Every structure is written in C-alpha cells, then in structure tokens.
Amino acid sequence: MPRVRELEVFRLLLPYGRKSETLLVKLTDHGGMTGWGEATSPPAKTWAKLEETLAAQLIGVDWEHPDTVPTGEPAVDMACWDLWTRMRGVPLAEAIGGTRTSLVATVRLTPDSSVESLVSRVNQQVCAGYGHVTVDVRPGWDVEPIRAVRQAYPALTLAVDCGNAYTDLDQLLALDSYGLEVIERPFAVADTYSHASLQDQVTASVAVEAGSSAELDDYLTLRAARVLLLRPSAFPSLSEVRRAHDRAAAAGWDIQCTGGQGAGLARAATVAVASLPGCTLPCDVTQPPRQNQIVTPIVGANAGVIAVPLTQPGLGHDIDETRLHRMVKESFRV
C-alpha cells in the first residue's frame, strides 16, 4: 500500500517554439520508490493548489489504488499510477487494460510557406517510414495544399486537422473530395450541430476532441462524428480517460490517441492509453522536437512505429534528472 513521504513539484520552461511551460510531480513513498506525472500547459492555480492543499492530502496518507486519490489534477493522478504500477512491477499500459505491443504512428505537419515546401516535407516523412500523415489546415491554407499532396501521393493515408477554425461547411466539403481518412476538429468545440451536419455529408470520418464524458455524450447523442481524439492530458484522471475510451468504442467509433506536448511523461501516458483495444487509428506523439524530452528512452516513432514499453513497470521511462534540472524554472518540496 503506497504511503507518500515526499512530494516534489517542478515548473519547467521548454525551449521550443513559443516558450511554454510544463509541470512535473514526483512522489516518493517510504520505501524510496518514485512515481512521476506531468501536466502540460497547466493553469496558474495548479501550482498553488499543489503547494497549499494537495501536499497535505498526500503526505503520509495510505491509499490502495490511484482512483482513491481524487485530486482532480492530471499530474498527481499520473504520478500515483506510475508509483502504484512500479510498486507492483507492471507496466502502466497493462494496468489500464492495454493489449498492443506497438502502435502505428501518424506524423503531423504544420502549415508551410509554400505548397511545394509542404510536399517536400511529406516526401521526407514517407521516406522515413510514415504511411499516415496529418496535415494542419486553416481557412486559406487547405484545398490547394491537400490537392498537391494527394496528387504527389495518391495512395498515402491522409488526415487533416482543422484546429476548430472553420465556420463554413462548403470549404470542408471541398476537402472531402481528396480521399481523406479523417477531418479532425473542424468547428468550435460547442458547435455539435455543425459537426453532425458535416459528418452526414462527407465520406471522411469527422474527429472531435472531448475533455470529459459529458462533452463526449453530446457528440454521441447527435452522431456528430465517427472518431474520438483522445488526449489523456485533457482529463483529470486516467480512469476518466478509460471511461471515455469505453463509451466511444461501445458506440462503434474509432479512437486516435494524441498528446505530443510536454517533456515526455505526458507522451508516455499517451502511448499507454493508445495501447487500449479501442484505439484503432494511428497515435500522434510527434511534436515537439525530441531533444526537449527529459525521459529515457525518448518517446517517439521509429519508421512510423511506436513501441509500447511492456518490459518496464510504470510509465516505462526513466527521468534524466540532469536535463530536468537544466530546464527547471522553479520547484518546491514537501
């Protein structure tokens, strides 16, 4: 039975793109076993809550299962799962019901300076072993680049991520003529009716992202999509992630796990969730650059395939604490 004797929290400044922050939680039990968790892009109140409230709830308290530690904080929940599974010597993927040993990966390509440059980048990824490519599109950067990619690669499995940026249904109907597998996040999250209307008119599967079972139920009721984009870091707990997975799978939806942000721990949890039986579409852990991860081995794809760590307990990755401390902006320990 775990009993946490020490809580450490680290705020990291990640040096890619527009500099962003991630928050790590380290739990140490009385036997010296540790568990790690991560919250990507955490709200400012998370830091204060961990320091002022959760530390007192966690330190010296016996608990039998991560579900009995209802903190509502993804980083703490992940750390509890990591600690609990390490103590039992089982991989996190196995503990939550995962069945896959490896995953097909998609690679995500952001908008480019030119159509020619985008096609060149697609070529690089195809040569690197990817058979599935997701292209980020926006109004004004959509039909022309997708047409060019499809002409260059007629057999490539292709998806687009619209970033919730569209309001015009006709633009998306035009994209559907290029043999897309999935149209991700076309409209604003709350606009379930537009999602349902689009799904009714296109051959591609519409994919929606939900951060709670209630949001997912709204989409399921209206049959507003056929794919759930499952981002574990958006849920308060891994058990809630599993419940969303089970609901979508029971409805006959495909599921794509996504979560490439942060310093590596959140990615590792994404891979564990993607090993669940209902996660039928390629996993997306392709961004940001690998050199910003603090875990070993790094989490990523090799020739379009992601290995699920089933020989190591917990998240299956160790922390490079030297690299961690180089990125720390501030920290505290209780």
Score class of each variant (00 low, 15 high):
residue 260 G to T: 06
residue 238 L to W: 08
residue 315 L to P: 07
residue 137 V to C: 01
residue 172 L to Y: 05
residue 30 H to E: 14
residue 216 L to G: 04
residue 168 D to R: 15
residue 12 L to G: 02
residue 218 D to G: 04
residue 70 P to S: 08
residue 252 G to D: 03
residue 91 P to F: 11
residue 171 Q to G: 09
residue 113 S to D: 10
residue 119 V to C: 05
residue 44 A to M: 04
residue 224 A to V: 14
residue 168 D to T: 14
residue 52 E to P: 00
residue 195 H to F: 15
residue 167 T to E: 08
residue 277 P to V: 03
residue 129 G to M: 11
residue 130 Y to A: 07
residue 330 E to W: 10
residue 18 R to Q: 10
residue 192 T to C: 09
residue 77 D to W: 07
residue 167 T to W: 04
residue 232 P to C: 10
residue 92 L to K: 09
residue 220 L to K: 12
residue 157 T to F: 03
residue 105 A to V: 14
residue 52 E to A: 14
residue 43 P to T: 07
residue 300 G to I: 13
residue 141 W to V: 12
residue 200 D to E: 13
residue 328 V to T: 13
residue 145 P to W: 10
residue 330 E to M: 11
residue 149 V to D: 00
residue 194 S to P: 01
residue 256 Q to F: 01
residue 121 R to Q: 15
residue 167 T to A: 08
residue 26 K to E: 06
residue 82 D to K: 02
residue 267 R to P: 06
residue 142 D to F: 10
residue 94 E to Y: 05
residue 106 T to N: 15
residue 115 V to H: 05
residue 138 R to T: 14
residue 96 I to K: 00
residue 135 V to S: 00
residue 225 A to V: 11
residue 322 T to K: 12
residue 238 L to F: 08
residue 54 L to I: 15
residue 247 R to S: 12
residue 133 V to E: 02
residue 274 A to V: 06
residue 190 A to K: 09
residue 101 T to L: 09
residue 57 Q to M: 13
residue 22 T to A: 14
residue 179 G to A: 06
residue 248 A to N: 03
residue 204 A to H: 06
residue 175 L to F: 10
residue 255 I to N: 03
residue 196 A to N: 02
residue 266 A to W: 11
residue 33 M to H: 12
residue 119 V to M: 03
residue 312 Q to S: 14
residue 304 G to A: 10
residue 222 L to Q: 13
residue 277 P to C: 01
residue 48 A to H: 06
residue 260 G to E: 01
residue 133 V to N: 01
residue 328 V to H: 00
residue 56 A to I: 10
residue 271 V to P: 04
residue 169 L to V: 15
residue 209 E to L: 09
residue 194 S to E: 04
residue 74 P to F: 12
residue 202 V to W: 01
residue 20 S to I: 11
residue 309 P to W: 02
residue 288 P to T: 02
residue 258 T to Q: 11
residue 241 V to F: 04
residue 72 G to M: 12
residue 123 N to P: 00
residue 298 I to L: 04
residue 139 P to S: 03
residue 88 R to S: 03
residue 141 W to C: 08
residue 257 C to K: 08
residue 75 A to D: 04
residue 89 G to T: 13
residue 234 A to E: 06
residue 237 S to K: 04
residue 240 E to Y: 01
residue 187 F to D: 01
residue 10 F to L: 07
residue 39 A to N: 08
residue 140 G to F: 09
residue 208 V to I: 15
residue 4 V to P: 01
residue 19 K to Y: 06
residue 259 G to Y: 12
residue 189 V to H: 11
residue 249 A to T: 15
residue 294 I to S: 02
residue 93 A to H: 08
residue 223 R to S: 11
residue 146 I to S: 07
residue 36 W to Y: 14
residue 266 A to P: 07
residue 288 P to Y: 02
residue 160 V to I: 14
residue 289 P to L: 13
residue 288 P to N: 02
